[in-house]
């Protein structure tokens, strides 16, 4: 039981966010354990990015709480955010910094001690396939490499919870495969949440799938159960996210 508590990295309770015109996320609950990879699926506008922004303190929830490694994100944001790594949909890159400068900045911002700084940067660069690019200016890198720098920025401080918003968008098939490997490797010591539109990606990488639709979690299963019950992710996704659409259209 105690081991369970130690392994609990993220716990989300009754989390909602209401934008002025509509509800973005409607009272969702879920928990994550160390070593788990969670795939967040859903059509555009389902609330995936809103959820991720709330988990990382970029957006204040209307109700509910987020505990990261047992620390309340809303009450102690500074302590909680040390355990977090976040790659937003658009990577937050300073175009005129070199890769090393940028990673050093990201590490210092996340309070990596100065004597571990260099080794953390070198290690992360290696993990993300950025060896030999340390001195290159970020603005001159290709889209794929920029995306890798974005991921590197999220993991340089060895966070317990890693949140990646569409990490594979805009990458070529080889790069997508590399990112998948990377996510698998990260999961050995952290929890990873990532959102995507590619269903096969989820089947390959995730231990657990969560489908969101119109601000609600409509599906939450372990990958093992899905295989066991021979559920087709494709079919269930279409089923769950299209059946609600008609009343929505009528309302509009």
């Amino acid at each position: 039981m105690t081991e369970e508590a130690v392994n609990l990295t993220l716990s989300v309770e009754n989390l909602s966010h209401r934008y002025s015109a509509f509800t973005g996320v409607n009272s969702i609950n879920f928990e994550m354990r160390r070593g788990e990879v969670l795939g967040l699926l859903g059509p555009n506008g389902a609330g995936k990015s809103t959820t991720m922004r709330m988990l990382t303190g970029n957006l204040a929830p209307s109700t509910g709480s987020v505990l990261i490694c047992g620390v309340d994100l809303l009450k102690n944001p500074d302590t909680a955010k040390i355990h977090l790594g976040y790659l937003p949909e658009i990577p937050p890159l300073y175009q005129n910094m070199s890769v090393d400068e940028y990673l050093r900045l990201a590490a210092t911002l996340h309070r990596v001690a100065s004597h571990c700084l260099e080794s953390a940067v070198i290690e992360t660069r290696h993990h993300c396939g950025l060896d030999g690019r340390g001195r290159q200016i970020i603005g001159t890198l290709s889209k794929g490499f920029q995306q890798r720098v974005g991921i590197a920025q999220a993991i340089v401080h060895n966070p317990d919870v890693i949140i990646l918003d569409e990490p594979t968008s805009g990458l070529d098939p080889n790069q997508i495969r590399e990112v998948r490997h990377l996510i698998g490797a990260l999961a050995t010591h952290s929890s990873v949440i990532f959102s995507t539109h590619i269903l096969s990606e989820v089947e390959n990488v995730c231990d657990r799938v969560l489908i969101m639709h119109q601000g609600d979690i409509v599906f939450d299963r372990k990958m093992g159960d899905i295989h066991q019950q021979q559920i087709h992710l494709d079919a269930i996704f279409t089923d769950l996210t299209q059946k609600h659409e008609n009343p929505e259209e009528q309302r509009q």
Partner: peptide, 14 residues
């Protein structure tokens, strides 16, 4: 404009 504010806000900074 460059979406880098997210980096600062997600970091443990006030």
């Amino acid at each position: 404009r460059n979406h880098t504010l997210t980096l600062l806000i997600s970091a443990p900074l006030s």
